[in-house]
């Protein structure tokens, strides 16, 4: 048991998209930055994700979305988290998120929006600096 608290991160792929190269690379990068990482696998429904968040109690949830379904799916996840009183978890979405959708997603409490070609260090630092607990 350690004195320093470990950051625990849940990496998810919601929706039907199976392109998991990015999220797997990210999972490893977060691990290499000393975090404890759970990757849910692909095809996660909002309920799957919220149930995992409830049980695993991560500090951050990273949603990887490349198929354009972010505006439909992300707000549902945020609403369901709220229903369970979970408001101290950083929820970020990345992948292919057009600029014009950011305001909408931000209004639902999502952050991040990192796209292809982002330095992994940038995302690692983002997680470290934006934790809500």
């Amino acid at each position: 048991m350690s004195k320093e608290r470990k950051i625990k991160v849940l990496c998810c792929k919601p929706g039907l998209d199976g392109h998991d190269r990015g999220v797997k690379v990210l999972a490893r990068a977060l691990r290499d930055a000393g975090m404890e990482v759970i990757y849910t696998g692909i095809h996660q429904t909002p309920d799957d994700i919220v149930n995992t968040v409830i049980q695993e109690d991560p500090d951050a949830v990273m949603l990887s979305m490349l198929s354009g379904s972010h505006n439909a799916i992300c707000p549902i996840i945020m609403d369901k988290l709220k229903e369970h009183g979970i408001d101290d978890v950083l929820v970020a979405v990345g992948g292919i998120i057009p600029d014009e959708d950011k305001t909408f997603l931000e209004s639902h409490g999502l952050k991040g929006f990192y796209g292809p070609g982002t330095d992994l260090k940038t995302i690692v630092d983002f997680v470290k600096n934006n934790l809500k607990r």
Partner: peptide, 19 residues
Amino acid sequence: PTSPLTGGALLGDRIRMKQ
């Protein structure tokens, strides 16, 4: 297991148990 080098870990088994 925790990686002895980085202190991080990939926690995998939960996904392997079908949800």
